[in-house]
Write a protein that binds this DNA or RNA. Structure first.
Lengths: 248, 248
DNA sequence: CTTGACCTTGACGCAACGTCAACCTCTACC
DNA sequence: GGTAGAGGTTGACGTTGCGTCAAGGTCAAG
């Protein structure tokens, strides 16, 4: 019993293109080929195709299917490996769903302000991981509470102050003003207060403040916020001067 | 302030290749191009890149990102649409996980027998949807209970009988034996009993049996099981003869 | 002038086919 | 025997987002 490529396609519920593809990659060669080039398939080929399609429905890739059919890999073992991949996929999708959901909530809740804040790459909550790693898990929680407690107006003010400070520092850096200049140190003082606002009752120590400065340099997101890597280094230097003189 | 492509790549945490790609597709053209062809980016470009990367992390495609950045689409609206897609993805992945898990369980539990049964494309449980649609939701449940109740030996016997019947019918069809021949009708009688076994206390009526025959023809999976579309038609005809003479 | 580091423009590769395009082949009917 | 029409063949491009060579200019430093 022989069937043409269309017959097999209809019988198995796929397309002739797919069968040609499987032939091309050597996954399912036809059982015979006519002198006119026509592909013909017999029952063995059809059985093989059934297995292919079944494994494909489970989500396996064609190379993995080929291995299983070649007997190089056990069916169960291949499926277990595939299951791990699927579970990772699920986690990834769920994380994305969580991110997108919170982002939408912020966009709708905080109107446009939050949107700009976030999309300018300076979302307060983006730094959750860093904050938790560096200053403990509940530091982020209290910081977030504080942030929400500010209200829209308070948040806007907070960000305006940030812009004023970072803008002033950028200008000072561009002008070549030394880091220990009084004007720069005044900006750093404002910066210290600005940072302290989010830290609850305990303002940052000299050490913590210096650590923050190092982070500005090391982390490109922060560095960019202060006008590029060299500018961030400049800011850190100024912070070092301030910490030595005022926080020692 | 201008940066080279590498600077921007480091600042934003991507690669120069990505930036060139974004230039190629018009998503992020450099703010200026030197006479030597070098790409230079300014702060506006960097801000734009920040938004691009942020949306990309949320899983949006580059065309969708381009729309958002062009102001053609609202941020929130794009994200909501994306969220729908993500939820579909989650469902798809979870369905696959369920399928793969049950398949693994069957492979390990039923040893090799179930594997062959399933991989031959004749898994009893595959037809859940059809059964529910045609004969009600609890028909499948009782059928499944029956199937499990058979035990491994019973299942093997059931399948052996199926092979014998379908093989006999295929031979009769190939030999050109008329559908109302006594020999063929004897096979059909066995088939009727074979089918009835899974239907619980009430054996199929003439009407239901004829409907099953129609399904053999219409559904390529069944058609294949009986040896191709023409053979399935032959089987249906023989079933019609049987229904008319024995079930009327 | 040479050496690196950095830049450029192609172009292939990946996963699994869908979708033309251009061109045979077989069957059926007149 | 001619002509549809259905079905077959082999390319080859498109899809998504870049990674990864390849071959060759540019620039700053020694």
């Amino acid at each position: 019993m022989q069937w043409s490529i269309q017959d097999i396609a209809r019988l198995s519920g796929t397309t002739s293109r797919t069968l040609r593809h499987y032939d091309d990659i050597g996954l399912l060669p036809p059982s015979s080929i006519g002198s006119n080039g026509y592909r013909y398939y017999d029952e063995a080929a059809l059985t093989r195709l059934q297995r292919i399609l079944m494994l494909r429905e489970l989500g396996l890739g064609l190379p993995a299917i080929a291995e299983v059919l070649a007997g190089q890999t056990d069916d169960a073992r291949a499926l277990v490996a595939h299951l791990h991949w699927l579970e990772q996929e699920r986690e990834r999708v769920e994380r994305q769903i969580a991110s997108v959901t919170t982002t939408i909530r912020k966009l709708e809740g905080g109107e446009q302000l939050m949107a700009e804040e976030m999309l300018d790459g300076f979302d307060h909550t983006v730094y959750k991981d860093e904050v938790e790693q560096r200053w403990g898990a509940d530091a982020y929680a209290t910081g977030d509470r504080w942030w929400r407690g500010l209200g829209v107006d308070g948040q806007a003010a907070f960000q305006a102050e940030d812009k004023a400070i970072s803008g002033g520092l950028a200008a000072a850096y561009a002008a070549g003003t030394p880091a220990d200049d009084a004007e720069v140190q005044a900006l750093i003082a404002r910066h210290y207060n600005w940072v302290s606002a989010g830290w609850g009752s305990n303002a940052p120590s000299a050490e913590a403040y210096l650590g923050l400065g190092d982070m500005y340099v090391a982390d490109p997101r922060f560095a960019q916020h202060y006008g590029g890597p060299e500018a961030a280094q400049y800011v850190r230097d100024a912070m070092g001067v301030y910490a030595a003189s005022e926080l020692a």
